[in-house]
């Protein structure tokens, strides 16, 4: 399969993630959308890795290492982020991000 298909898929996934982050107010969904963006990037990385490997480059698998990195970071992020959301929910009985609009003033 040509690499373009993967690129288009990952662009679509990424854009869905971006739109979700921008438009939704539920913190959990925003969180999921962030994960979606990360995974779109992961998909892209793997796709390019495969592409270069097919072309005969021996160091092409290095990109897949990044995928693992991103997964690990994402896992850590989920741990912290969900914890924050849970704390917010306990305080305000809501996961609407507009309630968290406390940066101003």
């Amino acid at each position: 399969m040509p690499v373009q298909y993967y690129i288009f898929l990952s662009i679509v996934l990424f854009c869905i993630g971006v739109m979700g982050v921008l438009m939704r107010r539920n913190a959990i969904i925003i969180f999921m959308c962030v994960e979606l963006m990360l995974n779109a990037v992961n998909l892209l990385l793997v796709a390019f890795s495969k592409m270069w490997a097919d072309a005969g480059r021996v160091d092409a698998s290095g990109a897949q290492i990044f995928v693992f990195f991103i997964m690990v970071v994402a896992a850590a992020e989920v741990a912290v982020g969900l914890a924050i959301i849970v704390m917010v929910y306990r305080n305000s009985q809501s996961v609407d991000i507009n309630i968290m609009n406390r940066l101003k003033n």
Binding site: V18, V21, L22, I97, N98, N101, L103, K104, N105
Partner: peptide
């Protein structure tokens, strides 16, 4: 512009 809306910041970033 610094209105404290995280969403707005992200939007600006995009």
């Amino acid at each position: 512009l610094q209105n404290g809306q995280v969403g707005f910041y992200i939007f600006a970033m995009v």
